[in-house]
Amino acid sequence: MIKRQFIIAGLLSWLIVIPHISHAALNVFACEPEWAAIAQEIGGDKVKVNSATRPMQDPHYVQARPSLISKVRRADLLVCTGADLEEGWLPVLLRKGSNPRIQAGQAGHLMIADYVQLKEIPIRLDRSEGHMHAAGNPHFQTDPRNMLPAARVVTERLVTLDGENEQVYRDHLSSFEQRWKASLRRWGERAAPLQGQPVVVYHRSWIYLQDWLGLKEVAALEPKPGVPPGSRYLADLLTRTQDMSGLLIIHSQYQESKSINWFSDKTGAPVVVLPSTVGGTPGADSLFSWFDTIVTRLLDAQDSAG
């Protein structure tokens, strides 16, 4: 016979355990490195930032690892892409992290997708179309213009959560906006020759970049989003693109390269690895150098494709 008093006492003892939480800095849990970088820009030394995804990880395929649960547990602000990009793992983390401050609907729960204009919102939702996102294509971080609304809303949330340092956050924001707008002009001027440049992408994760730079996507190596290409599909693609000249093949650092290299060999089109986030490729280790790298790599490849 189990003693009931013992059970009740055991359960109650849990409630008495009061952990020590220090509020020295706001804990920011970013789902992807780019939002970690934005949070760091705005928060400066008032925040402690962690990113759930590393640059070499495909953010679709992260698991709710123990280390992430312990980070979510302590987070004051969650900054994620949203638009279902993290649908496989973020809901589990939110449940397992037992943290009321960052649940949906709280000030500590921020999905940037809610504050930018998404493209490719599907008319028909059916998984035969591949890995669909009902809210639209979630890879909007590749258009640097979206970093401005992102920075603004991060600022708003930091101010809500930590009003004491409001001026610090607002100062950081205006400094960032100024530098970012100057960079946008600079990138725009440099990237002018890329207007109309035909590209073959691996995953359709560059549509926002294409829109920004005026690149023209002629094909995707994945037959459907998230579905790796088969040999027959690649052969078809080859015949479809054989008359095109000056093609560039672009893919991000974490995507498999076998089919990409095969396609490049057959077509002679150069492969450009573009960082999909901060830290994606060597030298792209800040928000600014990330887009510097993208523009530089595309221009270099365009030169070599002649």
């Binding site: 213009r145 979206n146 609304p149 707008k181 002009r185 990237a191 002018a192 920004w212």
Partner: peptide
């Protein structure tokens, strides 16, 4: 052409 300003 290539936009140099932020959109929204």
């Amino acid at each position: 052409s290539v936009s140099t300003e932020d959109k929204p």
